[in-house]
Design a protein around this nucleic acid. Structure first.
Lengths: 106, 106
DNA sequence: CTGTATCCTAGCGGATACTG
DNA sequence: CAGTATCCGCTAGGATACAG
């Protein structure tokens, strides 16, 4: 069996890993799982992220249907969609596995 | 609640996502789940990867304890460790989820 | 408050020739 | 067969000033 070129991008698990495997997406998803957040609120909550990257991260998550952006007169609220909450469940399961087997992970 | 700097790297799920969220790790894991492979054999099976990147991918997976490298007189065999098979199970679950909800994933 | 514009750096991924 | 050496482009990520 061999893996063709088009398989690599079309493989669902690879696609989702590449999307949320960046530096900040997991942190954003984790926060939005609690409640809705404003932009600067997120910026302050996630220590170390730059506004430029936060913007890009949110846009990408929005484009994939994980996050919904709602303008509310002068401010904006970001929240998880149903699909986003579904993803969050998957990541939670993966997190439990990772925590248990983290001994050889440095 | 806020996310401190050190949390980002120490979070198990983020760590594992960053490790296997690269371009080729999922493909390598998928192949090695079947059976042991030699280096050039992997290179041929994964269409589009360069030897340089394949080497780095294998080294990283080995360092994290997902893959075992076994020299066998003139050739080398790469195979999943127990931990690697465990990860493969997790990815398989994530893949099923992704396949089902792939409608808004492009 | 919610971003965008600009500029910069480091690292990933790729092509290819070479080595034991 | 199993890699390493070299070079190169692209993009992710970061700092910071500016804008509506």
């Amino acid at each position: 069996m061999s893996i063709a070129l088009q398989d690599y991008e079309s493989c669902p698990v690879t696609a989702v890993l590449r999307r949320i495997g960046d530096k900040w997406s997991p942190a954003v998803i984790r926060l939005l799982a609690e409640r809705g957040y404003g932009f600067n609120e997120l910026d302050r909550a996630i220590e170390g992220i730059s506004r430029r990257v936060l913007t890009r991260t949110l846009r990408a998550l929005e484009e994939d249907g994980f996050v919904r952006r709602t303008p509310l007169g002068g401010r904006v609220e970001y929240a998880l969609t149903e699909r986003g909450r579904s993803l969050r469940e998957q990541l939670y399961a993966l997190g439990r596995w990772a925590a248990v087997t983290a001994d050889r992970m440095h």
